[in-house]
Write a protein that binds this DNA or RNA. Sequence first.
DNA 1: ACAAAAAAAGACAAAAGTATCTAAAAGTCC
DNA 2: GGACTTTTAGATACTTTTGTCTTTTTTTGT
Lengths: 135, 135
Amino acid sequence: MAVVFSRACEYALRGLIVMAKAKDREVWRVPDVAEESNSPAPFLAKTFQQLVKGGILNSSKGRRGGFSFARPIDEIFLIDIVNILDGQRLTYDCALGMPDCHDENPCPFHVHWRRIRQPLIDALSEESLAQMAKK
Amino acid sequence: MAVVFSRACEYALRGLIVMAKAKDREVWRVPDVAEESNSPAPFLAKTFQQLVKGGILNSSKGRRGGFSFARPIDEIFLIDIVNILDGQRLTYDCALGMPDCHDENPCPFHVHWRRIRQPLIDALSEESLAQMAKK
DNA sequence: ACAAAAAAAGACAAAAGTATCTAAAAGTCC
DNA sequence: GGACTTTTAGATACTTTTGTCTTTTTTTGT
Ligand code: SF4
Ligand code: SF4
């Protein structure tokens, strides 16, 4: 088990940060992103396809093809990426794994998880790839 | 992938909360805990064995045997359970999955993860099973 | 002593997640 | 048009986690 994000999400975040940091370069081939972000290229390629479907990336085939951002990077927030790759797991699901329990008649742990999850959601929602690239 | 804890940890937390809530009962058989916490009994048994090794639970075999707390439940904190079952993953490892990188020359995400992880560690460190049982 | 009950230990099975490989489709450049 | 490059799609393999099953060991109660 990874720490908080799935491996796919970890690789994607690392890769997208690399891409966002390179102001001069627009289009990236998967092998280049993979090398720069220390990710396995074939696996990263799969997750980039998901990000294309999710509207984060554009892709183009052929000689000068590759992946590029589908919109300005100050309009791409970390939560967008996490939502596409890891779903609502981190932002909605019960931390104790109960399938059909939310808010009504909460168990003792509920209030804690709420207090922890909300700042996480806030941070992911407020931070854009553009801001990540600056630091 | 579970939300933040492994399944083993989810089941353990749920089970221990059930046990802590029952002030009248000291010794619990695994099948009873499993039923009360909606966990698979054989799997829960395995994780309880880990908690015995970790010093959280005592176990006794035979007719009136079962599991009981190894120390007062106001001295058992959630972080103790998480540390035994999930290791340092949540409290120390890099959220982006980089193996050998901590604090020195941090990447753009580092500061965010620190700001999120610390409240999590604090909450888990401050909350005891006794407090969990009250609510 | 004996039978029953419980945890302990280990083997095993199933599922999910991660990673690689191959062939196909589409675009670029000459 | 043809060679080449890149994504896309699908198949496949590996690994880890999760879950089950069986046997053994220990204790209790009769
Ligand atoms: S009340 Fe407890 S079991 Fe229900 S969603 Fe909240 S943490 Fe999960
Ligand atoms: S600096 Fe970035 S890569 Fe390094 S431990 Fe922190 S979050 Fe992980």
